[in-house]
Amino acid sequence: MLPIELPTKLRGQNRENVAHRQMRDKFGIDPETVDLRPFFGTKGSEEWSRVLVTDKALISVWRDAIDEDALAILPDYLTLPTAPDVWTVAANAQGVSVRLGPDDGFGAHADLGAILLNDALEACDRRPKALLRIGEPIPAIDAIASEHGIGVETDAGSVGAKALSHGEVACDLRRDPQLARARMTARILPWRWPMAFGLVAAIVWAAAEWIVTDRIAKETQAIRAQTMAIVQDHFVDGAPVVDVRVQVGRVLASAQAQAHSEGDRPNPLSLFGQTAIVLNAASARAETASFDTAEGFRVVAILDNFAAVEDLVADLEQAGISVDLQDTRANDAGVQATLALSTSNGATEGDNQ
């Protein structure tokens, strides 16, 4: 396991590519013969800063030598029990394996291992609370622990150290990360053209929808402009148009009232027709309409509020209809208004309708 310095913002394949290039330039490692893979540690961080370096020929030999149901192929130091703040040393025929907590370690000859362990203790910001020794004692390493004031333990349970409980199996050297990535690429590549065509089709459809929507909006604006021009020319004499329906309704009601006032005798049905136009323009709901010679023409209407009643009276009078507001009261439907109506030139006469 070797440390390596990488920019913190690099992620994924780009981080691996930079790591491979640095190891090749720094140590002259040939990627064709040496396997390099990131060591994510116990947290699985994407900001890894160590790499596992292994001879590909050795990996091939190890794969052939173990059973298929074996748990994993790991560096010897990653199989040692450990815990946070506990370092582990194990002697073997080739030298020593040293575990520097869950996220670091190394293997070396005994003499070199003692030197590397001392360097690690000198460089670390937080020294371990205990040094767990497995196997035969190594005087040089025990002496180093004593110099740094670190107790040597031989029982893993007493310091809470456990083996293969810190995500070590994820570092299985049997797994070929490059092969897995190549297989994933082979699965994705056949779909690249359908996905590209689908994306182009989606863009074309969105553009067509935008064009249609824009054309409809422009046509609507043109119709609105034509309507405003007609209303200003023929109904309001160039005055500003605030509400087309109300203003046109008032003009039509006034024209009808003027036409009937020029006749010999007003007609209650004509008066009701004029009133209905104004009521409709004001969104009023007529409950009853009646006429008799004693009380004249009366309308009971429902409006939203008292302000709407006042606006209705003003609209009727502007249309040439005399209004006597006889009663207003609020109910569940809104405001009920009772109005006595007549033409401006006198009371309407006739039989009961």
Rank of each mutant, 00 (worst) to 15 (best):
L10V: 02
V18F: 09
K26I: 13
K26P: 07
F27G: 02
F27I: 04
D30W: 06
E32Q: 10
V34G: 01
G44R: 02
S45Y: 07
E46C: 08
W48G: 00
L52S: 11
S60N: 12
W62T: 08
D64M: 10
L80E: 01
L80I: 03
V98K: 03
V98P: 01
I115G: 13
L116W: 06
D119M: 05
A120I: 06
I138M: 03
I141T: 08
D142V: 02
A143T: 11
A145N: 01
A145E: 02
H148A: 05
V152G: 10
A156N: 00
D172T: 07
R175F: 12
P177S: 08
M184H: 07
W191M: 14
P194Y: 04
A196R: 06
V200K: 01
E209P: 08
I216G: 07
A217I: 06
A222V: 13
P240C: 05
P240D: 03
R245S: 15
A253M: 00
S261L: 11
R265N: 09
L271W: 01
V278F: 00
L279T: 04
A282V: 00
A282M: 07
R285V: 10
A294Q: 15
A301R: 00
L303V: 15
V309D: 00
L316W: 05
D327L: 10
A330T: 15
Q336G: 08
A337R: 07
A337V: 08
A340Y: 07
L341G: 01
T343S: 14
